[in-house]
């Protein structure tokens, strides 16, 4: 009865009402994952589950037994930042920084979706093997992550720099 979180085994909580987000924040003190709305509307709580992005406020922790969760705290390799973390600093992809962990985790999950060729609302050819990497695609796919400070341009620039090559 355990969930793997950033490589550690964590027991599933007793109270079935506990969201994955509250498990992270209140029980494990992994407060890098943020709560902006607690109702799936802002993306601040985005984490990766087996590499896929989810909003952890709408996820009950008990459902994630045996799954592998990566949070913002699990992205750096010791002191070395993940390239996207560094790109966020370089491109000033945040102001207050509260939406930032969610933006970063979401972008990593999104890049994997792009690589798998998953189309979005703005993808022209739904049958194509590859989805062309473009600013419009990124903006569409990142729109579940709100940034009320308005750091959107820097966020997209940071993602483009980090994943543009990979996708091309």
């Amino acid at each position: 009865m355990a969930i793997e979180i950033n490589g550690s085994q964590v027991p599933v909580p007793d109270d079935p009402r506990v969201s994955l987000l509250d498990l992270l924040r209140e029980s494990l003190h992994l407060t890098g994952t943020k709560k902006g709305c607690n109702q799936g509307a802002c993306g601040a709580c985005t984490v990766l589950v087996d590499g896929e992005r989810i909003v952890s406020c709408l996820a009950l922790a008990v459902q994630y037994e045996g799954r592998s969760i990566t949070t913002i705290e699990g992205l750096s390799d010791g002191d070395a930042l993940h390239p996207l973390q560094q790109a966020f600093i370089d491109h000033d992809g945040f102001q207050c920084g509260y939406c930032t962990p969610g933006q970063i985790c979401s972008a990593i999950g999104m890049a994997a979706e792009l690589r798998r060729g998953l189309p979005s609302h703005v993808t022209g050819d739904l049958t194509a093997e590859r989805v062309p990497f473009s600013r419009v695609e990124l903006q569409e796919r990142m729109s579940g992550n709100l940034c009320c400070c308005g750091a959107h341009n820097g966020i997209i620039d940071a993602i483009t720099e980090t994943f543009g090559e990979v996708a091309a």
Binding site: R25, H29, L30, T31, G32, T33, K34, K35, T71, I72, E73, L75, S76, L81, Q85, Q86, F88, I89, D90, D92, F94, G97, Y98, T100, P101, I104
Partner: peptide, 21 residues
């Protein structure tokens, strides 16, 4: 100059009000 608090923010280490143990 890049933000001096950038590193703690992108690592999720900045503790906001509801996060102080």
């Amino acid at each position: 100059v890049s933000r001096l608090d950038g590193r703690v923010k992108v690592r999720g280490e900045a503790r906001f009000a509801a996060e102080v143990p």
